[in-house]
């Protein structure tokens, strides 16, 4: 059960949030090919390590925002607003990236 720092409300329990999955790429134009469209719809990186994902503070302020989370250690490195540029995350001292489960 994570503790998630909502940009509006501060750190709150995961139970107050809704998960929105990995931040997808931007929506392709309608003339995009079938394969590229399938890629947009279904393909996700699912990395071992840092992932950018969407969360909504659904039982709080109702805002959607982005979280940078390490899927190995579950450490949350940054949160940022939808539409904002991806923050640079320094994980050089994450030598234990493989040390978790």
């Amino acid at each position: 059960m994570l503790r998630i720092p909502c940009p509006c409300c501060g750190e709150r329990d995961e139970a107050e949030f809704r998960y929105g999955g990995e931040v997808p790429g931007s929506i392709p134009q309608t003339d995009v090919g079938d394969e590229a469209w399938a890629d947009y719809l279904f393909a996700r990186d699912n990395p071992k390590g840092l992932v950018h994902e969407r969360w909504c503070h659904s039982h709080g302020c109702g805002q959607w925002f982005h979280v940078v989370r390490d899927t190995v250690t579950h450490r949350i490195h940054a949160v940022y607003g939808v539409g904002e540029p991806r923050p640079v995350v320094d994980c050089s001292n994450e030598s234990q990236a493989d040390g978790g489960r």
Partner: peptide
């Protein structure tokens, strides 16, 4: 309602 909110906030903001 939540789905519309998600589309508005995340894509059509």
């Amino acid at each position: 309602a939540a789905w519309l909110e998600e589309w508005h906030q995340c894509e059509f903001f």
